[in-house]
Every structure is written in structure tokens, then in C-alpha cells.
Design a protein around this nucleic acid. Structure first.
Lengths: 220, 220
DNA sequence: GTCTATAGTCGGATAGAC
DNA sequence: GTCTATCCGACTATAGAC
């Protein structure tokens, strides 16, 4: 295939090609031949650089964590700081939460790369391997914490209560669904693909639900 | 392996074994040898009954649609009739929606079989094949319609508007997440598995979010 | 560090006995 | 309808040249 540009070194090209092929076909279904072909590299380079197919898989998990951290990290840090500040008003938390949701949709639904790593991550959710530890510790855990610090006070729930955790995951699902049920959503909306305008519609719908949930926790 | 009871005929045993193995390893990753072994059947029975591996895969999609229809069908039909009845009050719609959500959680999160077919369905969402058409036409489409008829009037949105569709899918995501992000949720809650008591907690958290969304659409 | 060649295994499908 | 035997292609990993 040799689709990927051969500028970066073979090691990096292999990781990016592996992300694509592992995502599409799973661990067993992905062949080292297909990955090497996609990367424009030799098959023998995989045992050479990563010790084997498993090592390459784990390297892909680290690469995904890097990508998501680079994209969402700044926003999550800002949200965390704001949430920790005692001077922050409920209205500011409210706005910060909506901004976080907008950014999450942009990354998760709006980028082509997300189509690649989402499959990888979902697979790990169903059948966790060592790669799940990497993703949870570096991406999911920190993301949850930032959201919980923002949303807990708005919902009037204890920071470490199970009910807060479950309500937050449920809220996260409101955004995840646009990636995880993409095919069904596109078919129902009679869309062929998500466009920037349609992403705005998605953000607006998500905002409407979030505002309802956040406002219900507010004293009148 | 020969785990599956050999009472049913080989054809049926193959479908049930294939659901498990396709779910775990994907289409390419699943070997006909593993499926036949799990079913306690001969490898040659797969080309014989289904024409080949692809035919077996499609038969699994039909089997999943049967299972879900059997589980959710009665509730969806009842909800649809209630939603169509002009005498139905908003409060009745409200309650019917919560009941539907409870049932959905029971089936999606509370059953062991859902662990099998959820992987299959999610895979089809990311990379739809002919099997997706079966699942959409027989399961996803009818489910959406019933929910939309209940929820549209409560949210005060036009039945066929894009914003209603997107808000409904977002709401559906609130429940889906408990299956699709199961590993992350279990880790954050420090649970080892979902139990009946924990399913009640999940239903309560989902209800809280749903009530907030439905009440926001109500005139004070 | 990258290549070719090849070893050893496992894949799906078929033929034909029973 | 179910089995064994077998074909042939695809798989991962290694050895060793360059």
C-alpha cells in the first residue's frame, strides 16, 4: 500500500499504520503484512523495533494517549483549575462544562483520527488488555476527574459518591454515542457524513441536554 | 471446547458459538475451527449450512435481532401504542419513558448475552456490513421510533426535526455507555462486576438525568 | 537499520467416505 | 447430515546477507 508518507522514521510510521489496521481488524485480524505494507516498511521491522506484534499493539496505546492528551489536555487542565478555585461561581462551572463538551465533540466526532483510535479504545473496553491500563491511567481517569470536579457541585452530590460517578458516566455517554453509534445516527438523520455544520447541530443538542441536567441540580 | 450443549441441532449451535467467537475476535480474528469447536460441531458444517464464514456471520446478525426483539419488543410496542393515543397525558409519557429506560438497562447491562452481541453490534457501527442493515431495520429503527414518539411531545420538538433526533440519540447514549465503557466504569467505581443492586443504582442515576431532561421541556 | 528467504503454523474450503 | 483427509494460501517470526 505505502499510503503513509515515508518522511518519519520507520518506527513511527509503523505505529500510525498499526493504529489504523488494528482498529479496523482487531489484534488477531490485523496482519503484520498489512501493517508493514501500510507503513511502507518491512515486515521484519516489527519484531526488530517492538519485539513482536504485541509490543507494537502496546505502543499504539501509548500513541493514542499522547494524541488525546495533546488535544484535550489543555482544556481539562483549565477546567480542573477553575473547578478547584473557591471563587468560581456556579455560572462559571456551568459555562466551563459546556465548553468542555464542545471540545470533546470536536475531538471525538469531528476528527478523522478519532475514527481510528475510537475503535481501538472500544475494543479495549470490551476486552481489556495491558493497553487498557495505559488508556485509563493517562486519558480516562484524568478526564473523569476534571468533569467530576466541575459537575459535582452543580448537581449537589458528594465528590466520591457512586451516584455522582454513575450520573457523570451517563453524561459522558451522551457525547460518546455520536462516535459509537455513528452508523445508526447517520442513517436516521439521512446524513452521509458529519460536516462542520452538523457538528454544530450535535453540540447544540448535547448542550440542551446538559443544561437541563445542570439546571435541575440548581436551586431556583 | 464443546462447551455449548449439543441438544439443539448443529446449525443452531453454530450460530450461538459464532456469536461468541465473532464478538470476541471480530470477523477475521474468529476462526471457523474455534467456532466449530465451541459448538461441538464439525468445521465442514459451516460451509455446508451457511455457504461459508460470511453466511454464518450474517446468520448471527439475524439471531441477535431475534433475541433483542424478543426482549424489548413487547415494551416497545406498548410504549408506541401509549404514545399514539391522544388521551395519553404527559405524566404517562414521562412514566413510560422511565420504564423503557429501566428495561433497556436490564437487557443491555444486566444480561450476559448482551456482552456477546454488544461487541458484534458496535463492530458493525464502526464498519457496517450487510449485517448492519439487518440490525438497523429490525432493531435500531423500530426502537428509535418508539422513543421518539414518547419523547418528542415531552421536549416540545417536531417529530421529524433533526434536533429531536440528535437529542434522542444523545439520551440513548446515556444508557449505552454502561455497556460500551463498562471497563472504565467498573474501574472508577471500584466494582468487579455489575450486580443486581448495582444495576438499581445505574437505573436510578439514569432516571435522574432523564427526569431532568424531560422536566426541562415541560411548562412550569 | 533494512532487506530477502524461509521455517513452521494456522487459516478456510473442498472431496469423498459413511 | 456428519465425518476425515487434504489442498493451498496466509500468517508470524527468524536467520543471515548487505
Amino acid at each position: 500500500m505505502q499510503v503513509v508518507a515515508e518522511k518519519a522514521d520507520a518506527r513511527q510510521r509503523l505505529i500510525e499504520a498499526a493504529l489504523k489496521v488494528f482498529g479496523e481488524h482487531g489484534f488477531k485480524g490485523a496482519s503484520t503484512r498489512a501493517i508493514a505494507g501500510e507503513a511502507g516498511a518491512n515486515i521484519a521491522a516489527i519484531p526488530y523495533y517492538f519485539g513482536g506484534k504485541e509490543g507494537l499493539y502496546l505502543a499504539v496505546a501509548g500513541y493514542i494517549a499522547d494524541q488525546i492528551t495533546g488535544s484535550m489536555g489543555p482544556g481539562l487542565n483549565a477546567a480542573g483549575k477553575l473547578a478547584d478555585d473557591p471563587a468560581t461561581t456556579p455560572e462559571q462551572r456551568h459555562q466551563a462544562m459546556l465548553a468542555l463538551a464542545d471540545g470533546f465533540i470536536s475531538m471525538l466526532v469531528g476528527t478523522e483520527e478519532a475514527a481510528l483510535w475510537a475503535r481501538f479504545v472500544v475494543r479495549e473496553q470490551f476486552d481489556p488488555t495491558e493497553a487498557f491500563d495505559v488508556l485509563y491511567d493517562r486519558v480516562m481517569g484524568p478526564s473523569y476527574v476534571a468533569i467530576a470536579k466541575l459537575l459535582g457541585p452543580l448537581l449537589g452530590l458528594q465528590p466520591d459518591s457512586d451516584v455522582l460517578k454513575l450520573r457523570i458516566f451517563s453524561v459522558i455517554g451522551q457525547a460518546l454515542v455520536f462516535r459509537v453509534a455513528r452508523a445508526a445516527i447517520l442513517r436516521r438523520l439521512e446524513w452521509d457524513a458529519y460536516t462542520p455544520e452538523r457538528l454544530d447541530q450535535i453540540r447544540a443538542a448535547l448542550r440542551a441536554n446538559l443544561i437541563a441536567i445542570m439546571d435541575a441540580g440548581r436551586p431556583a
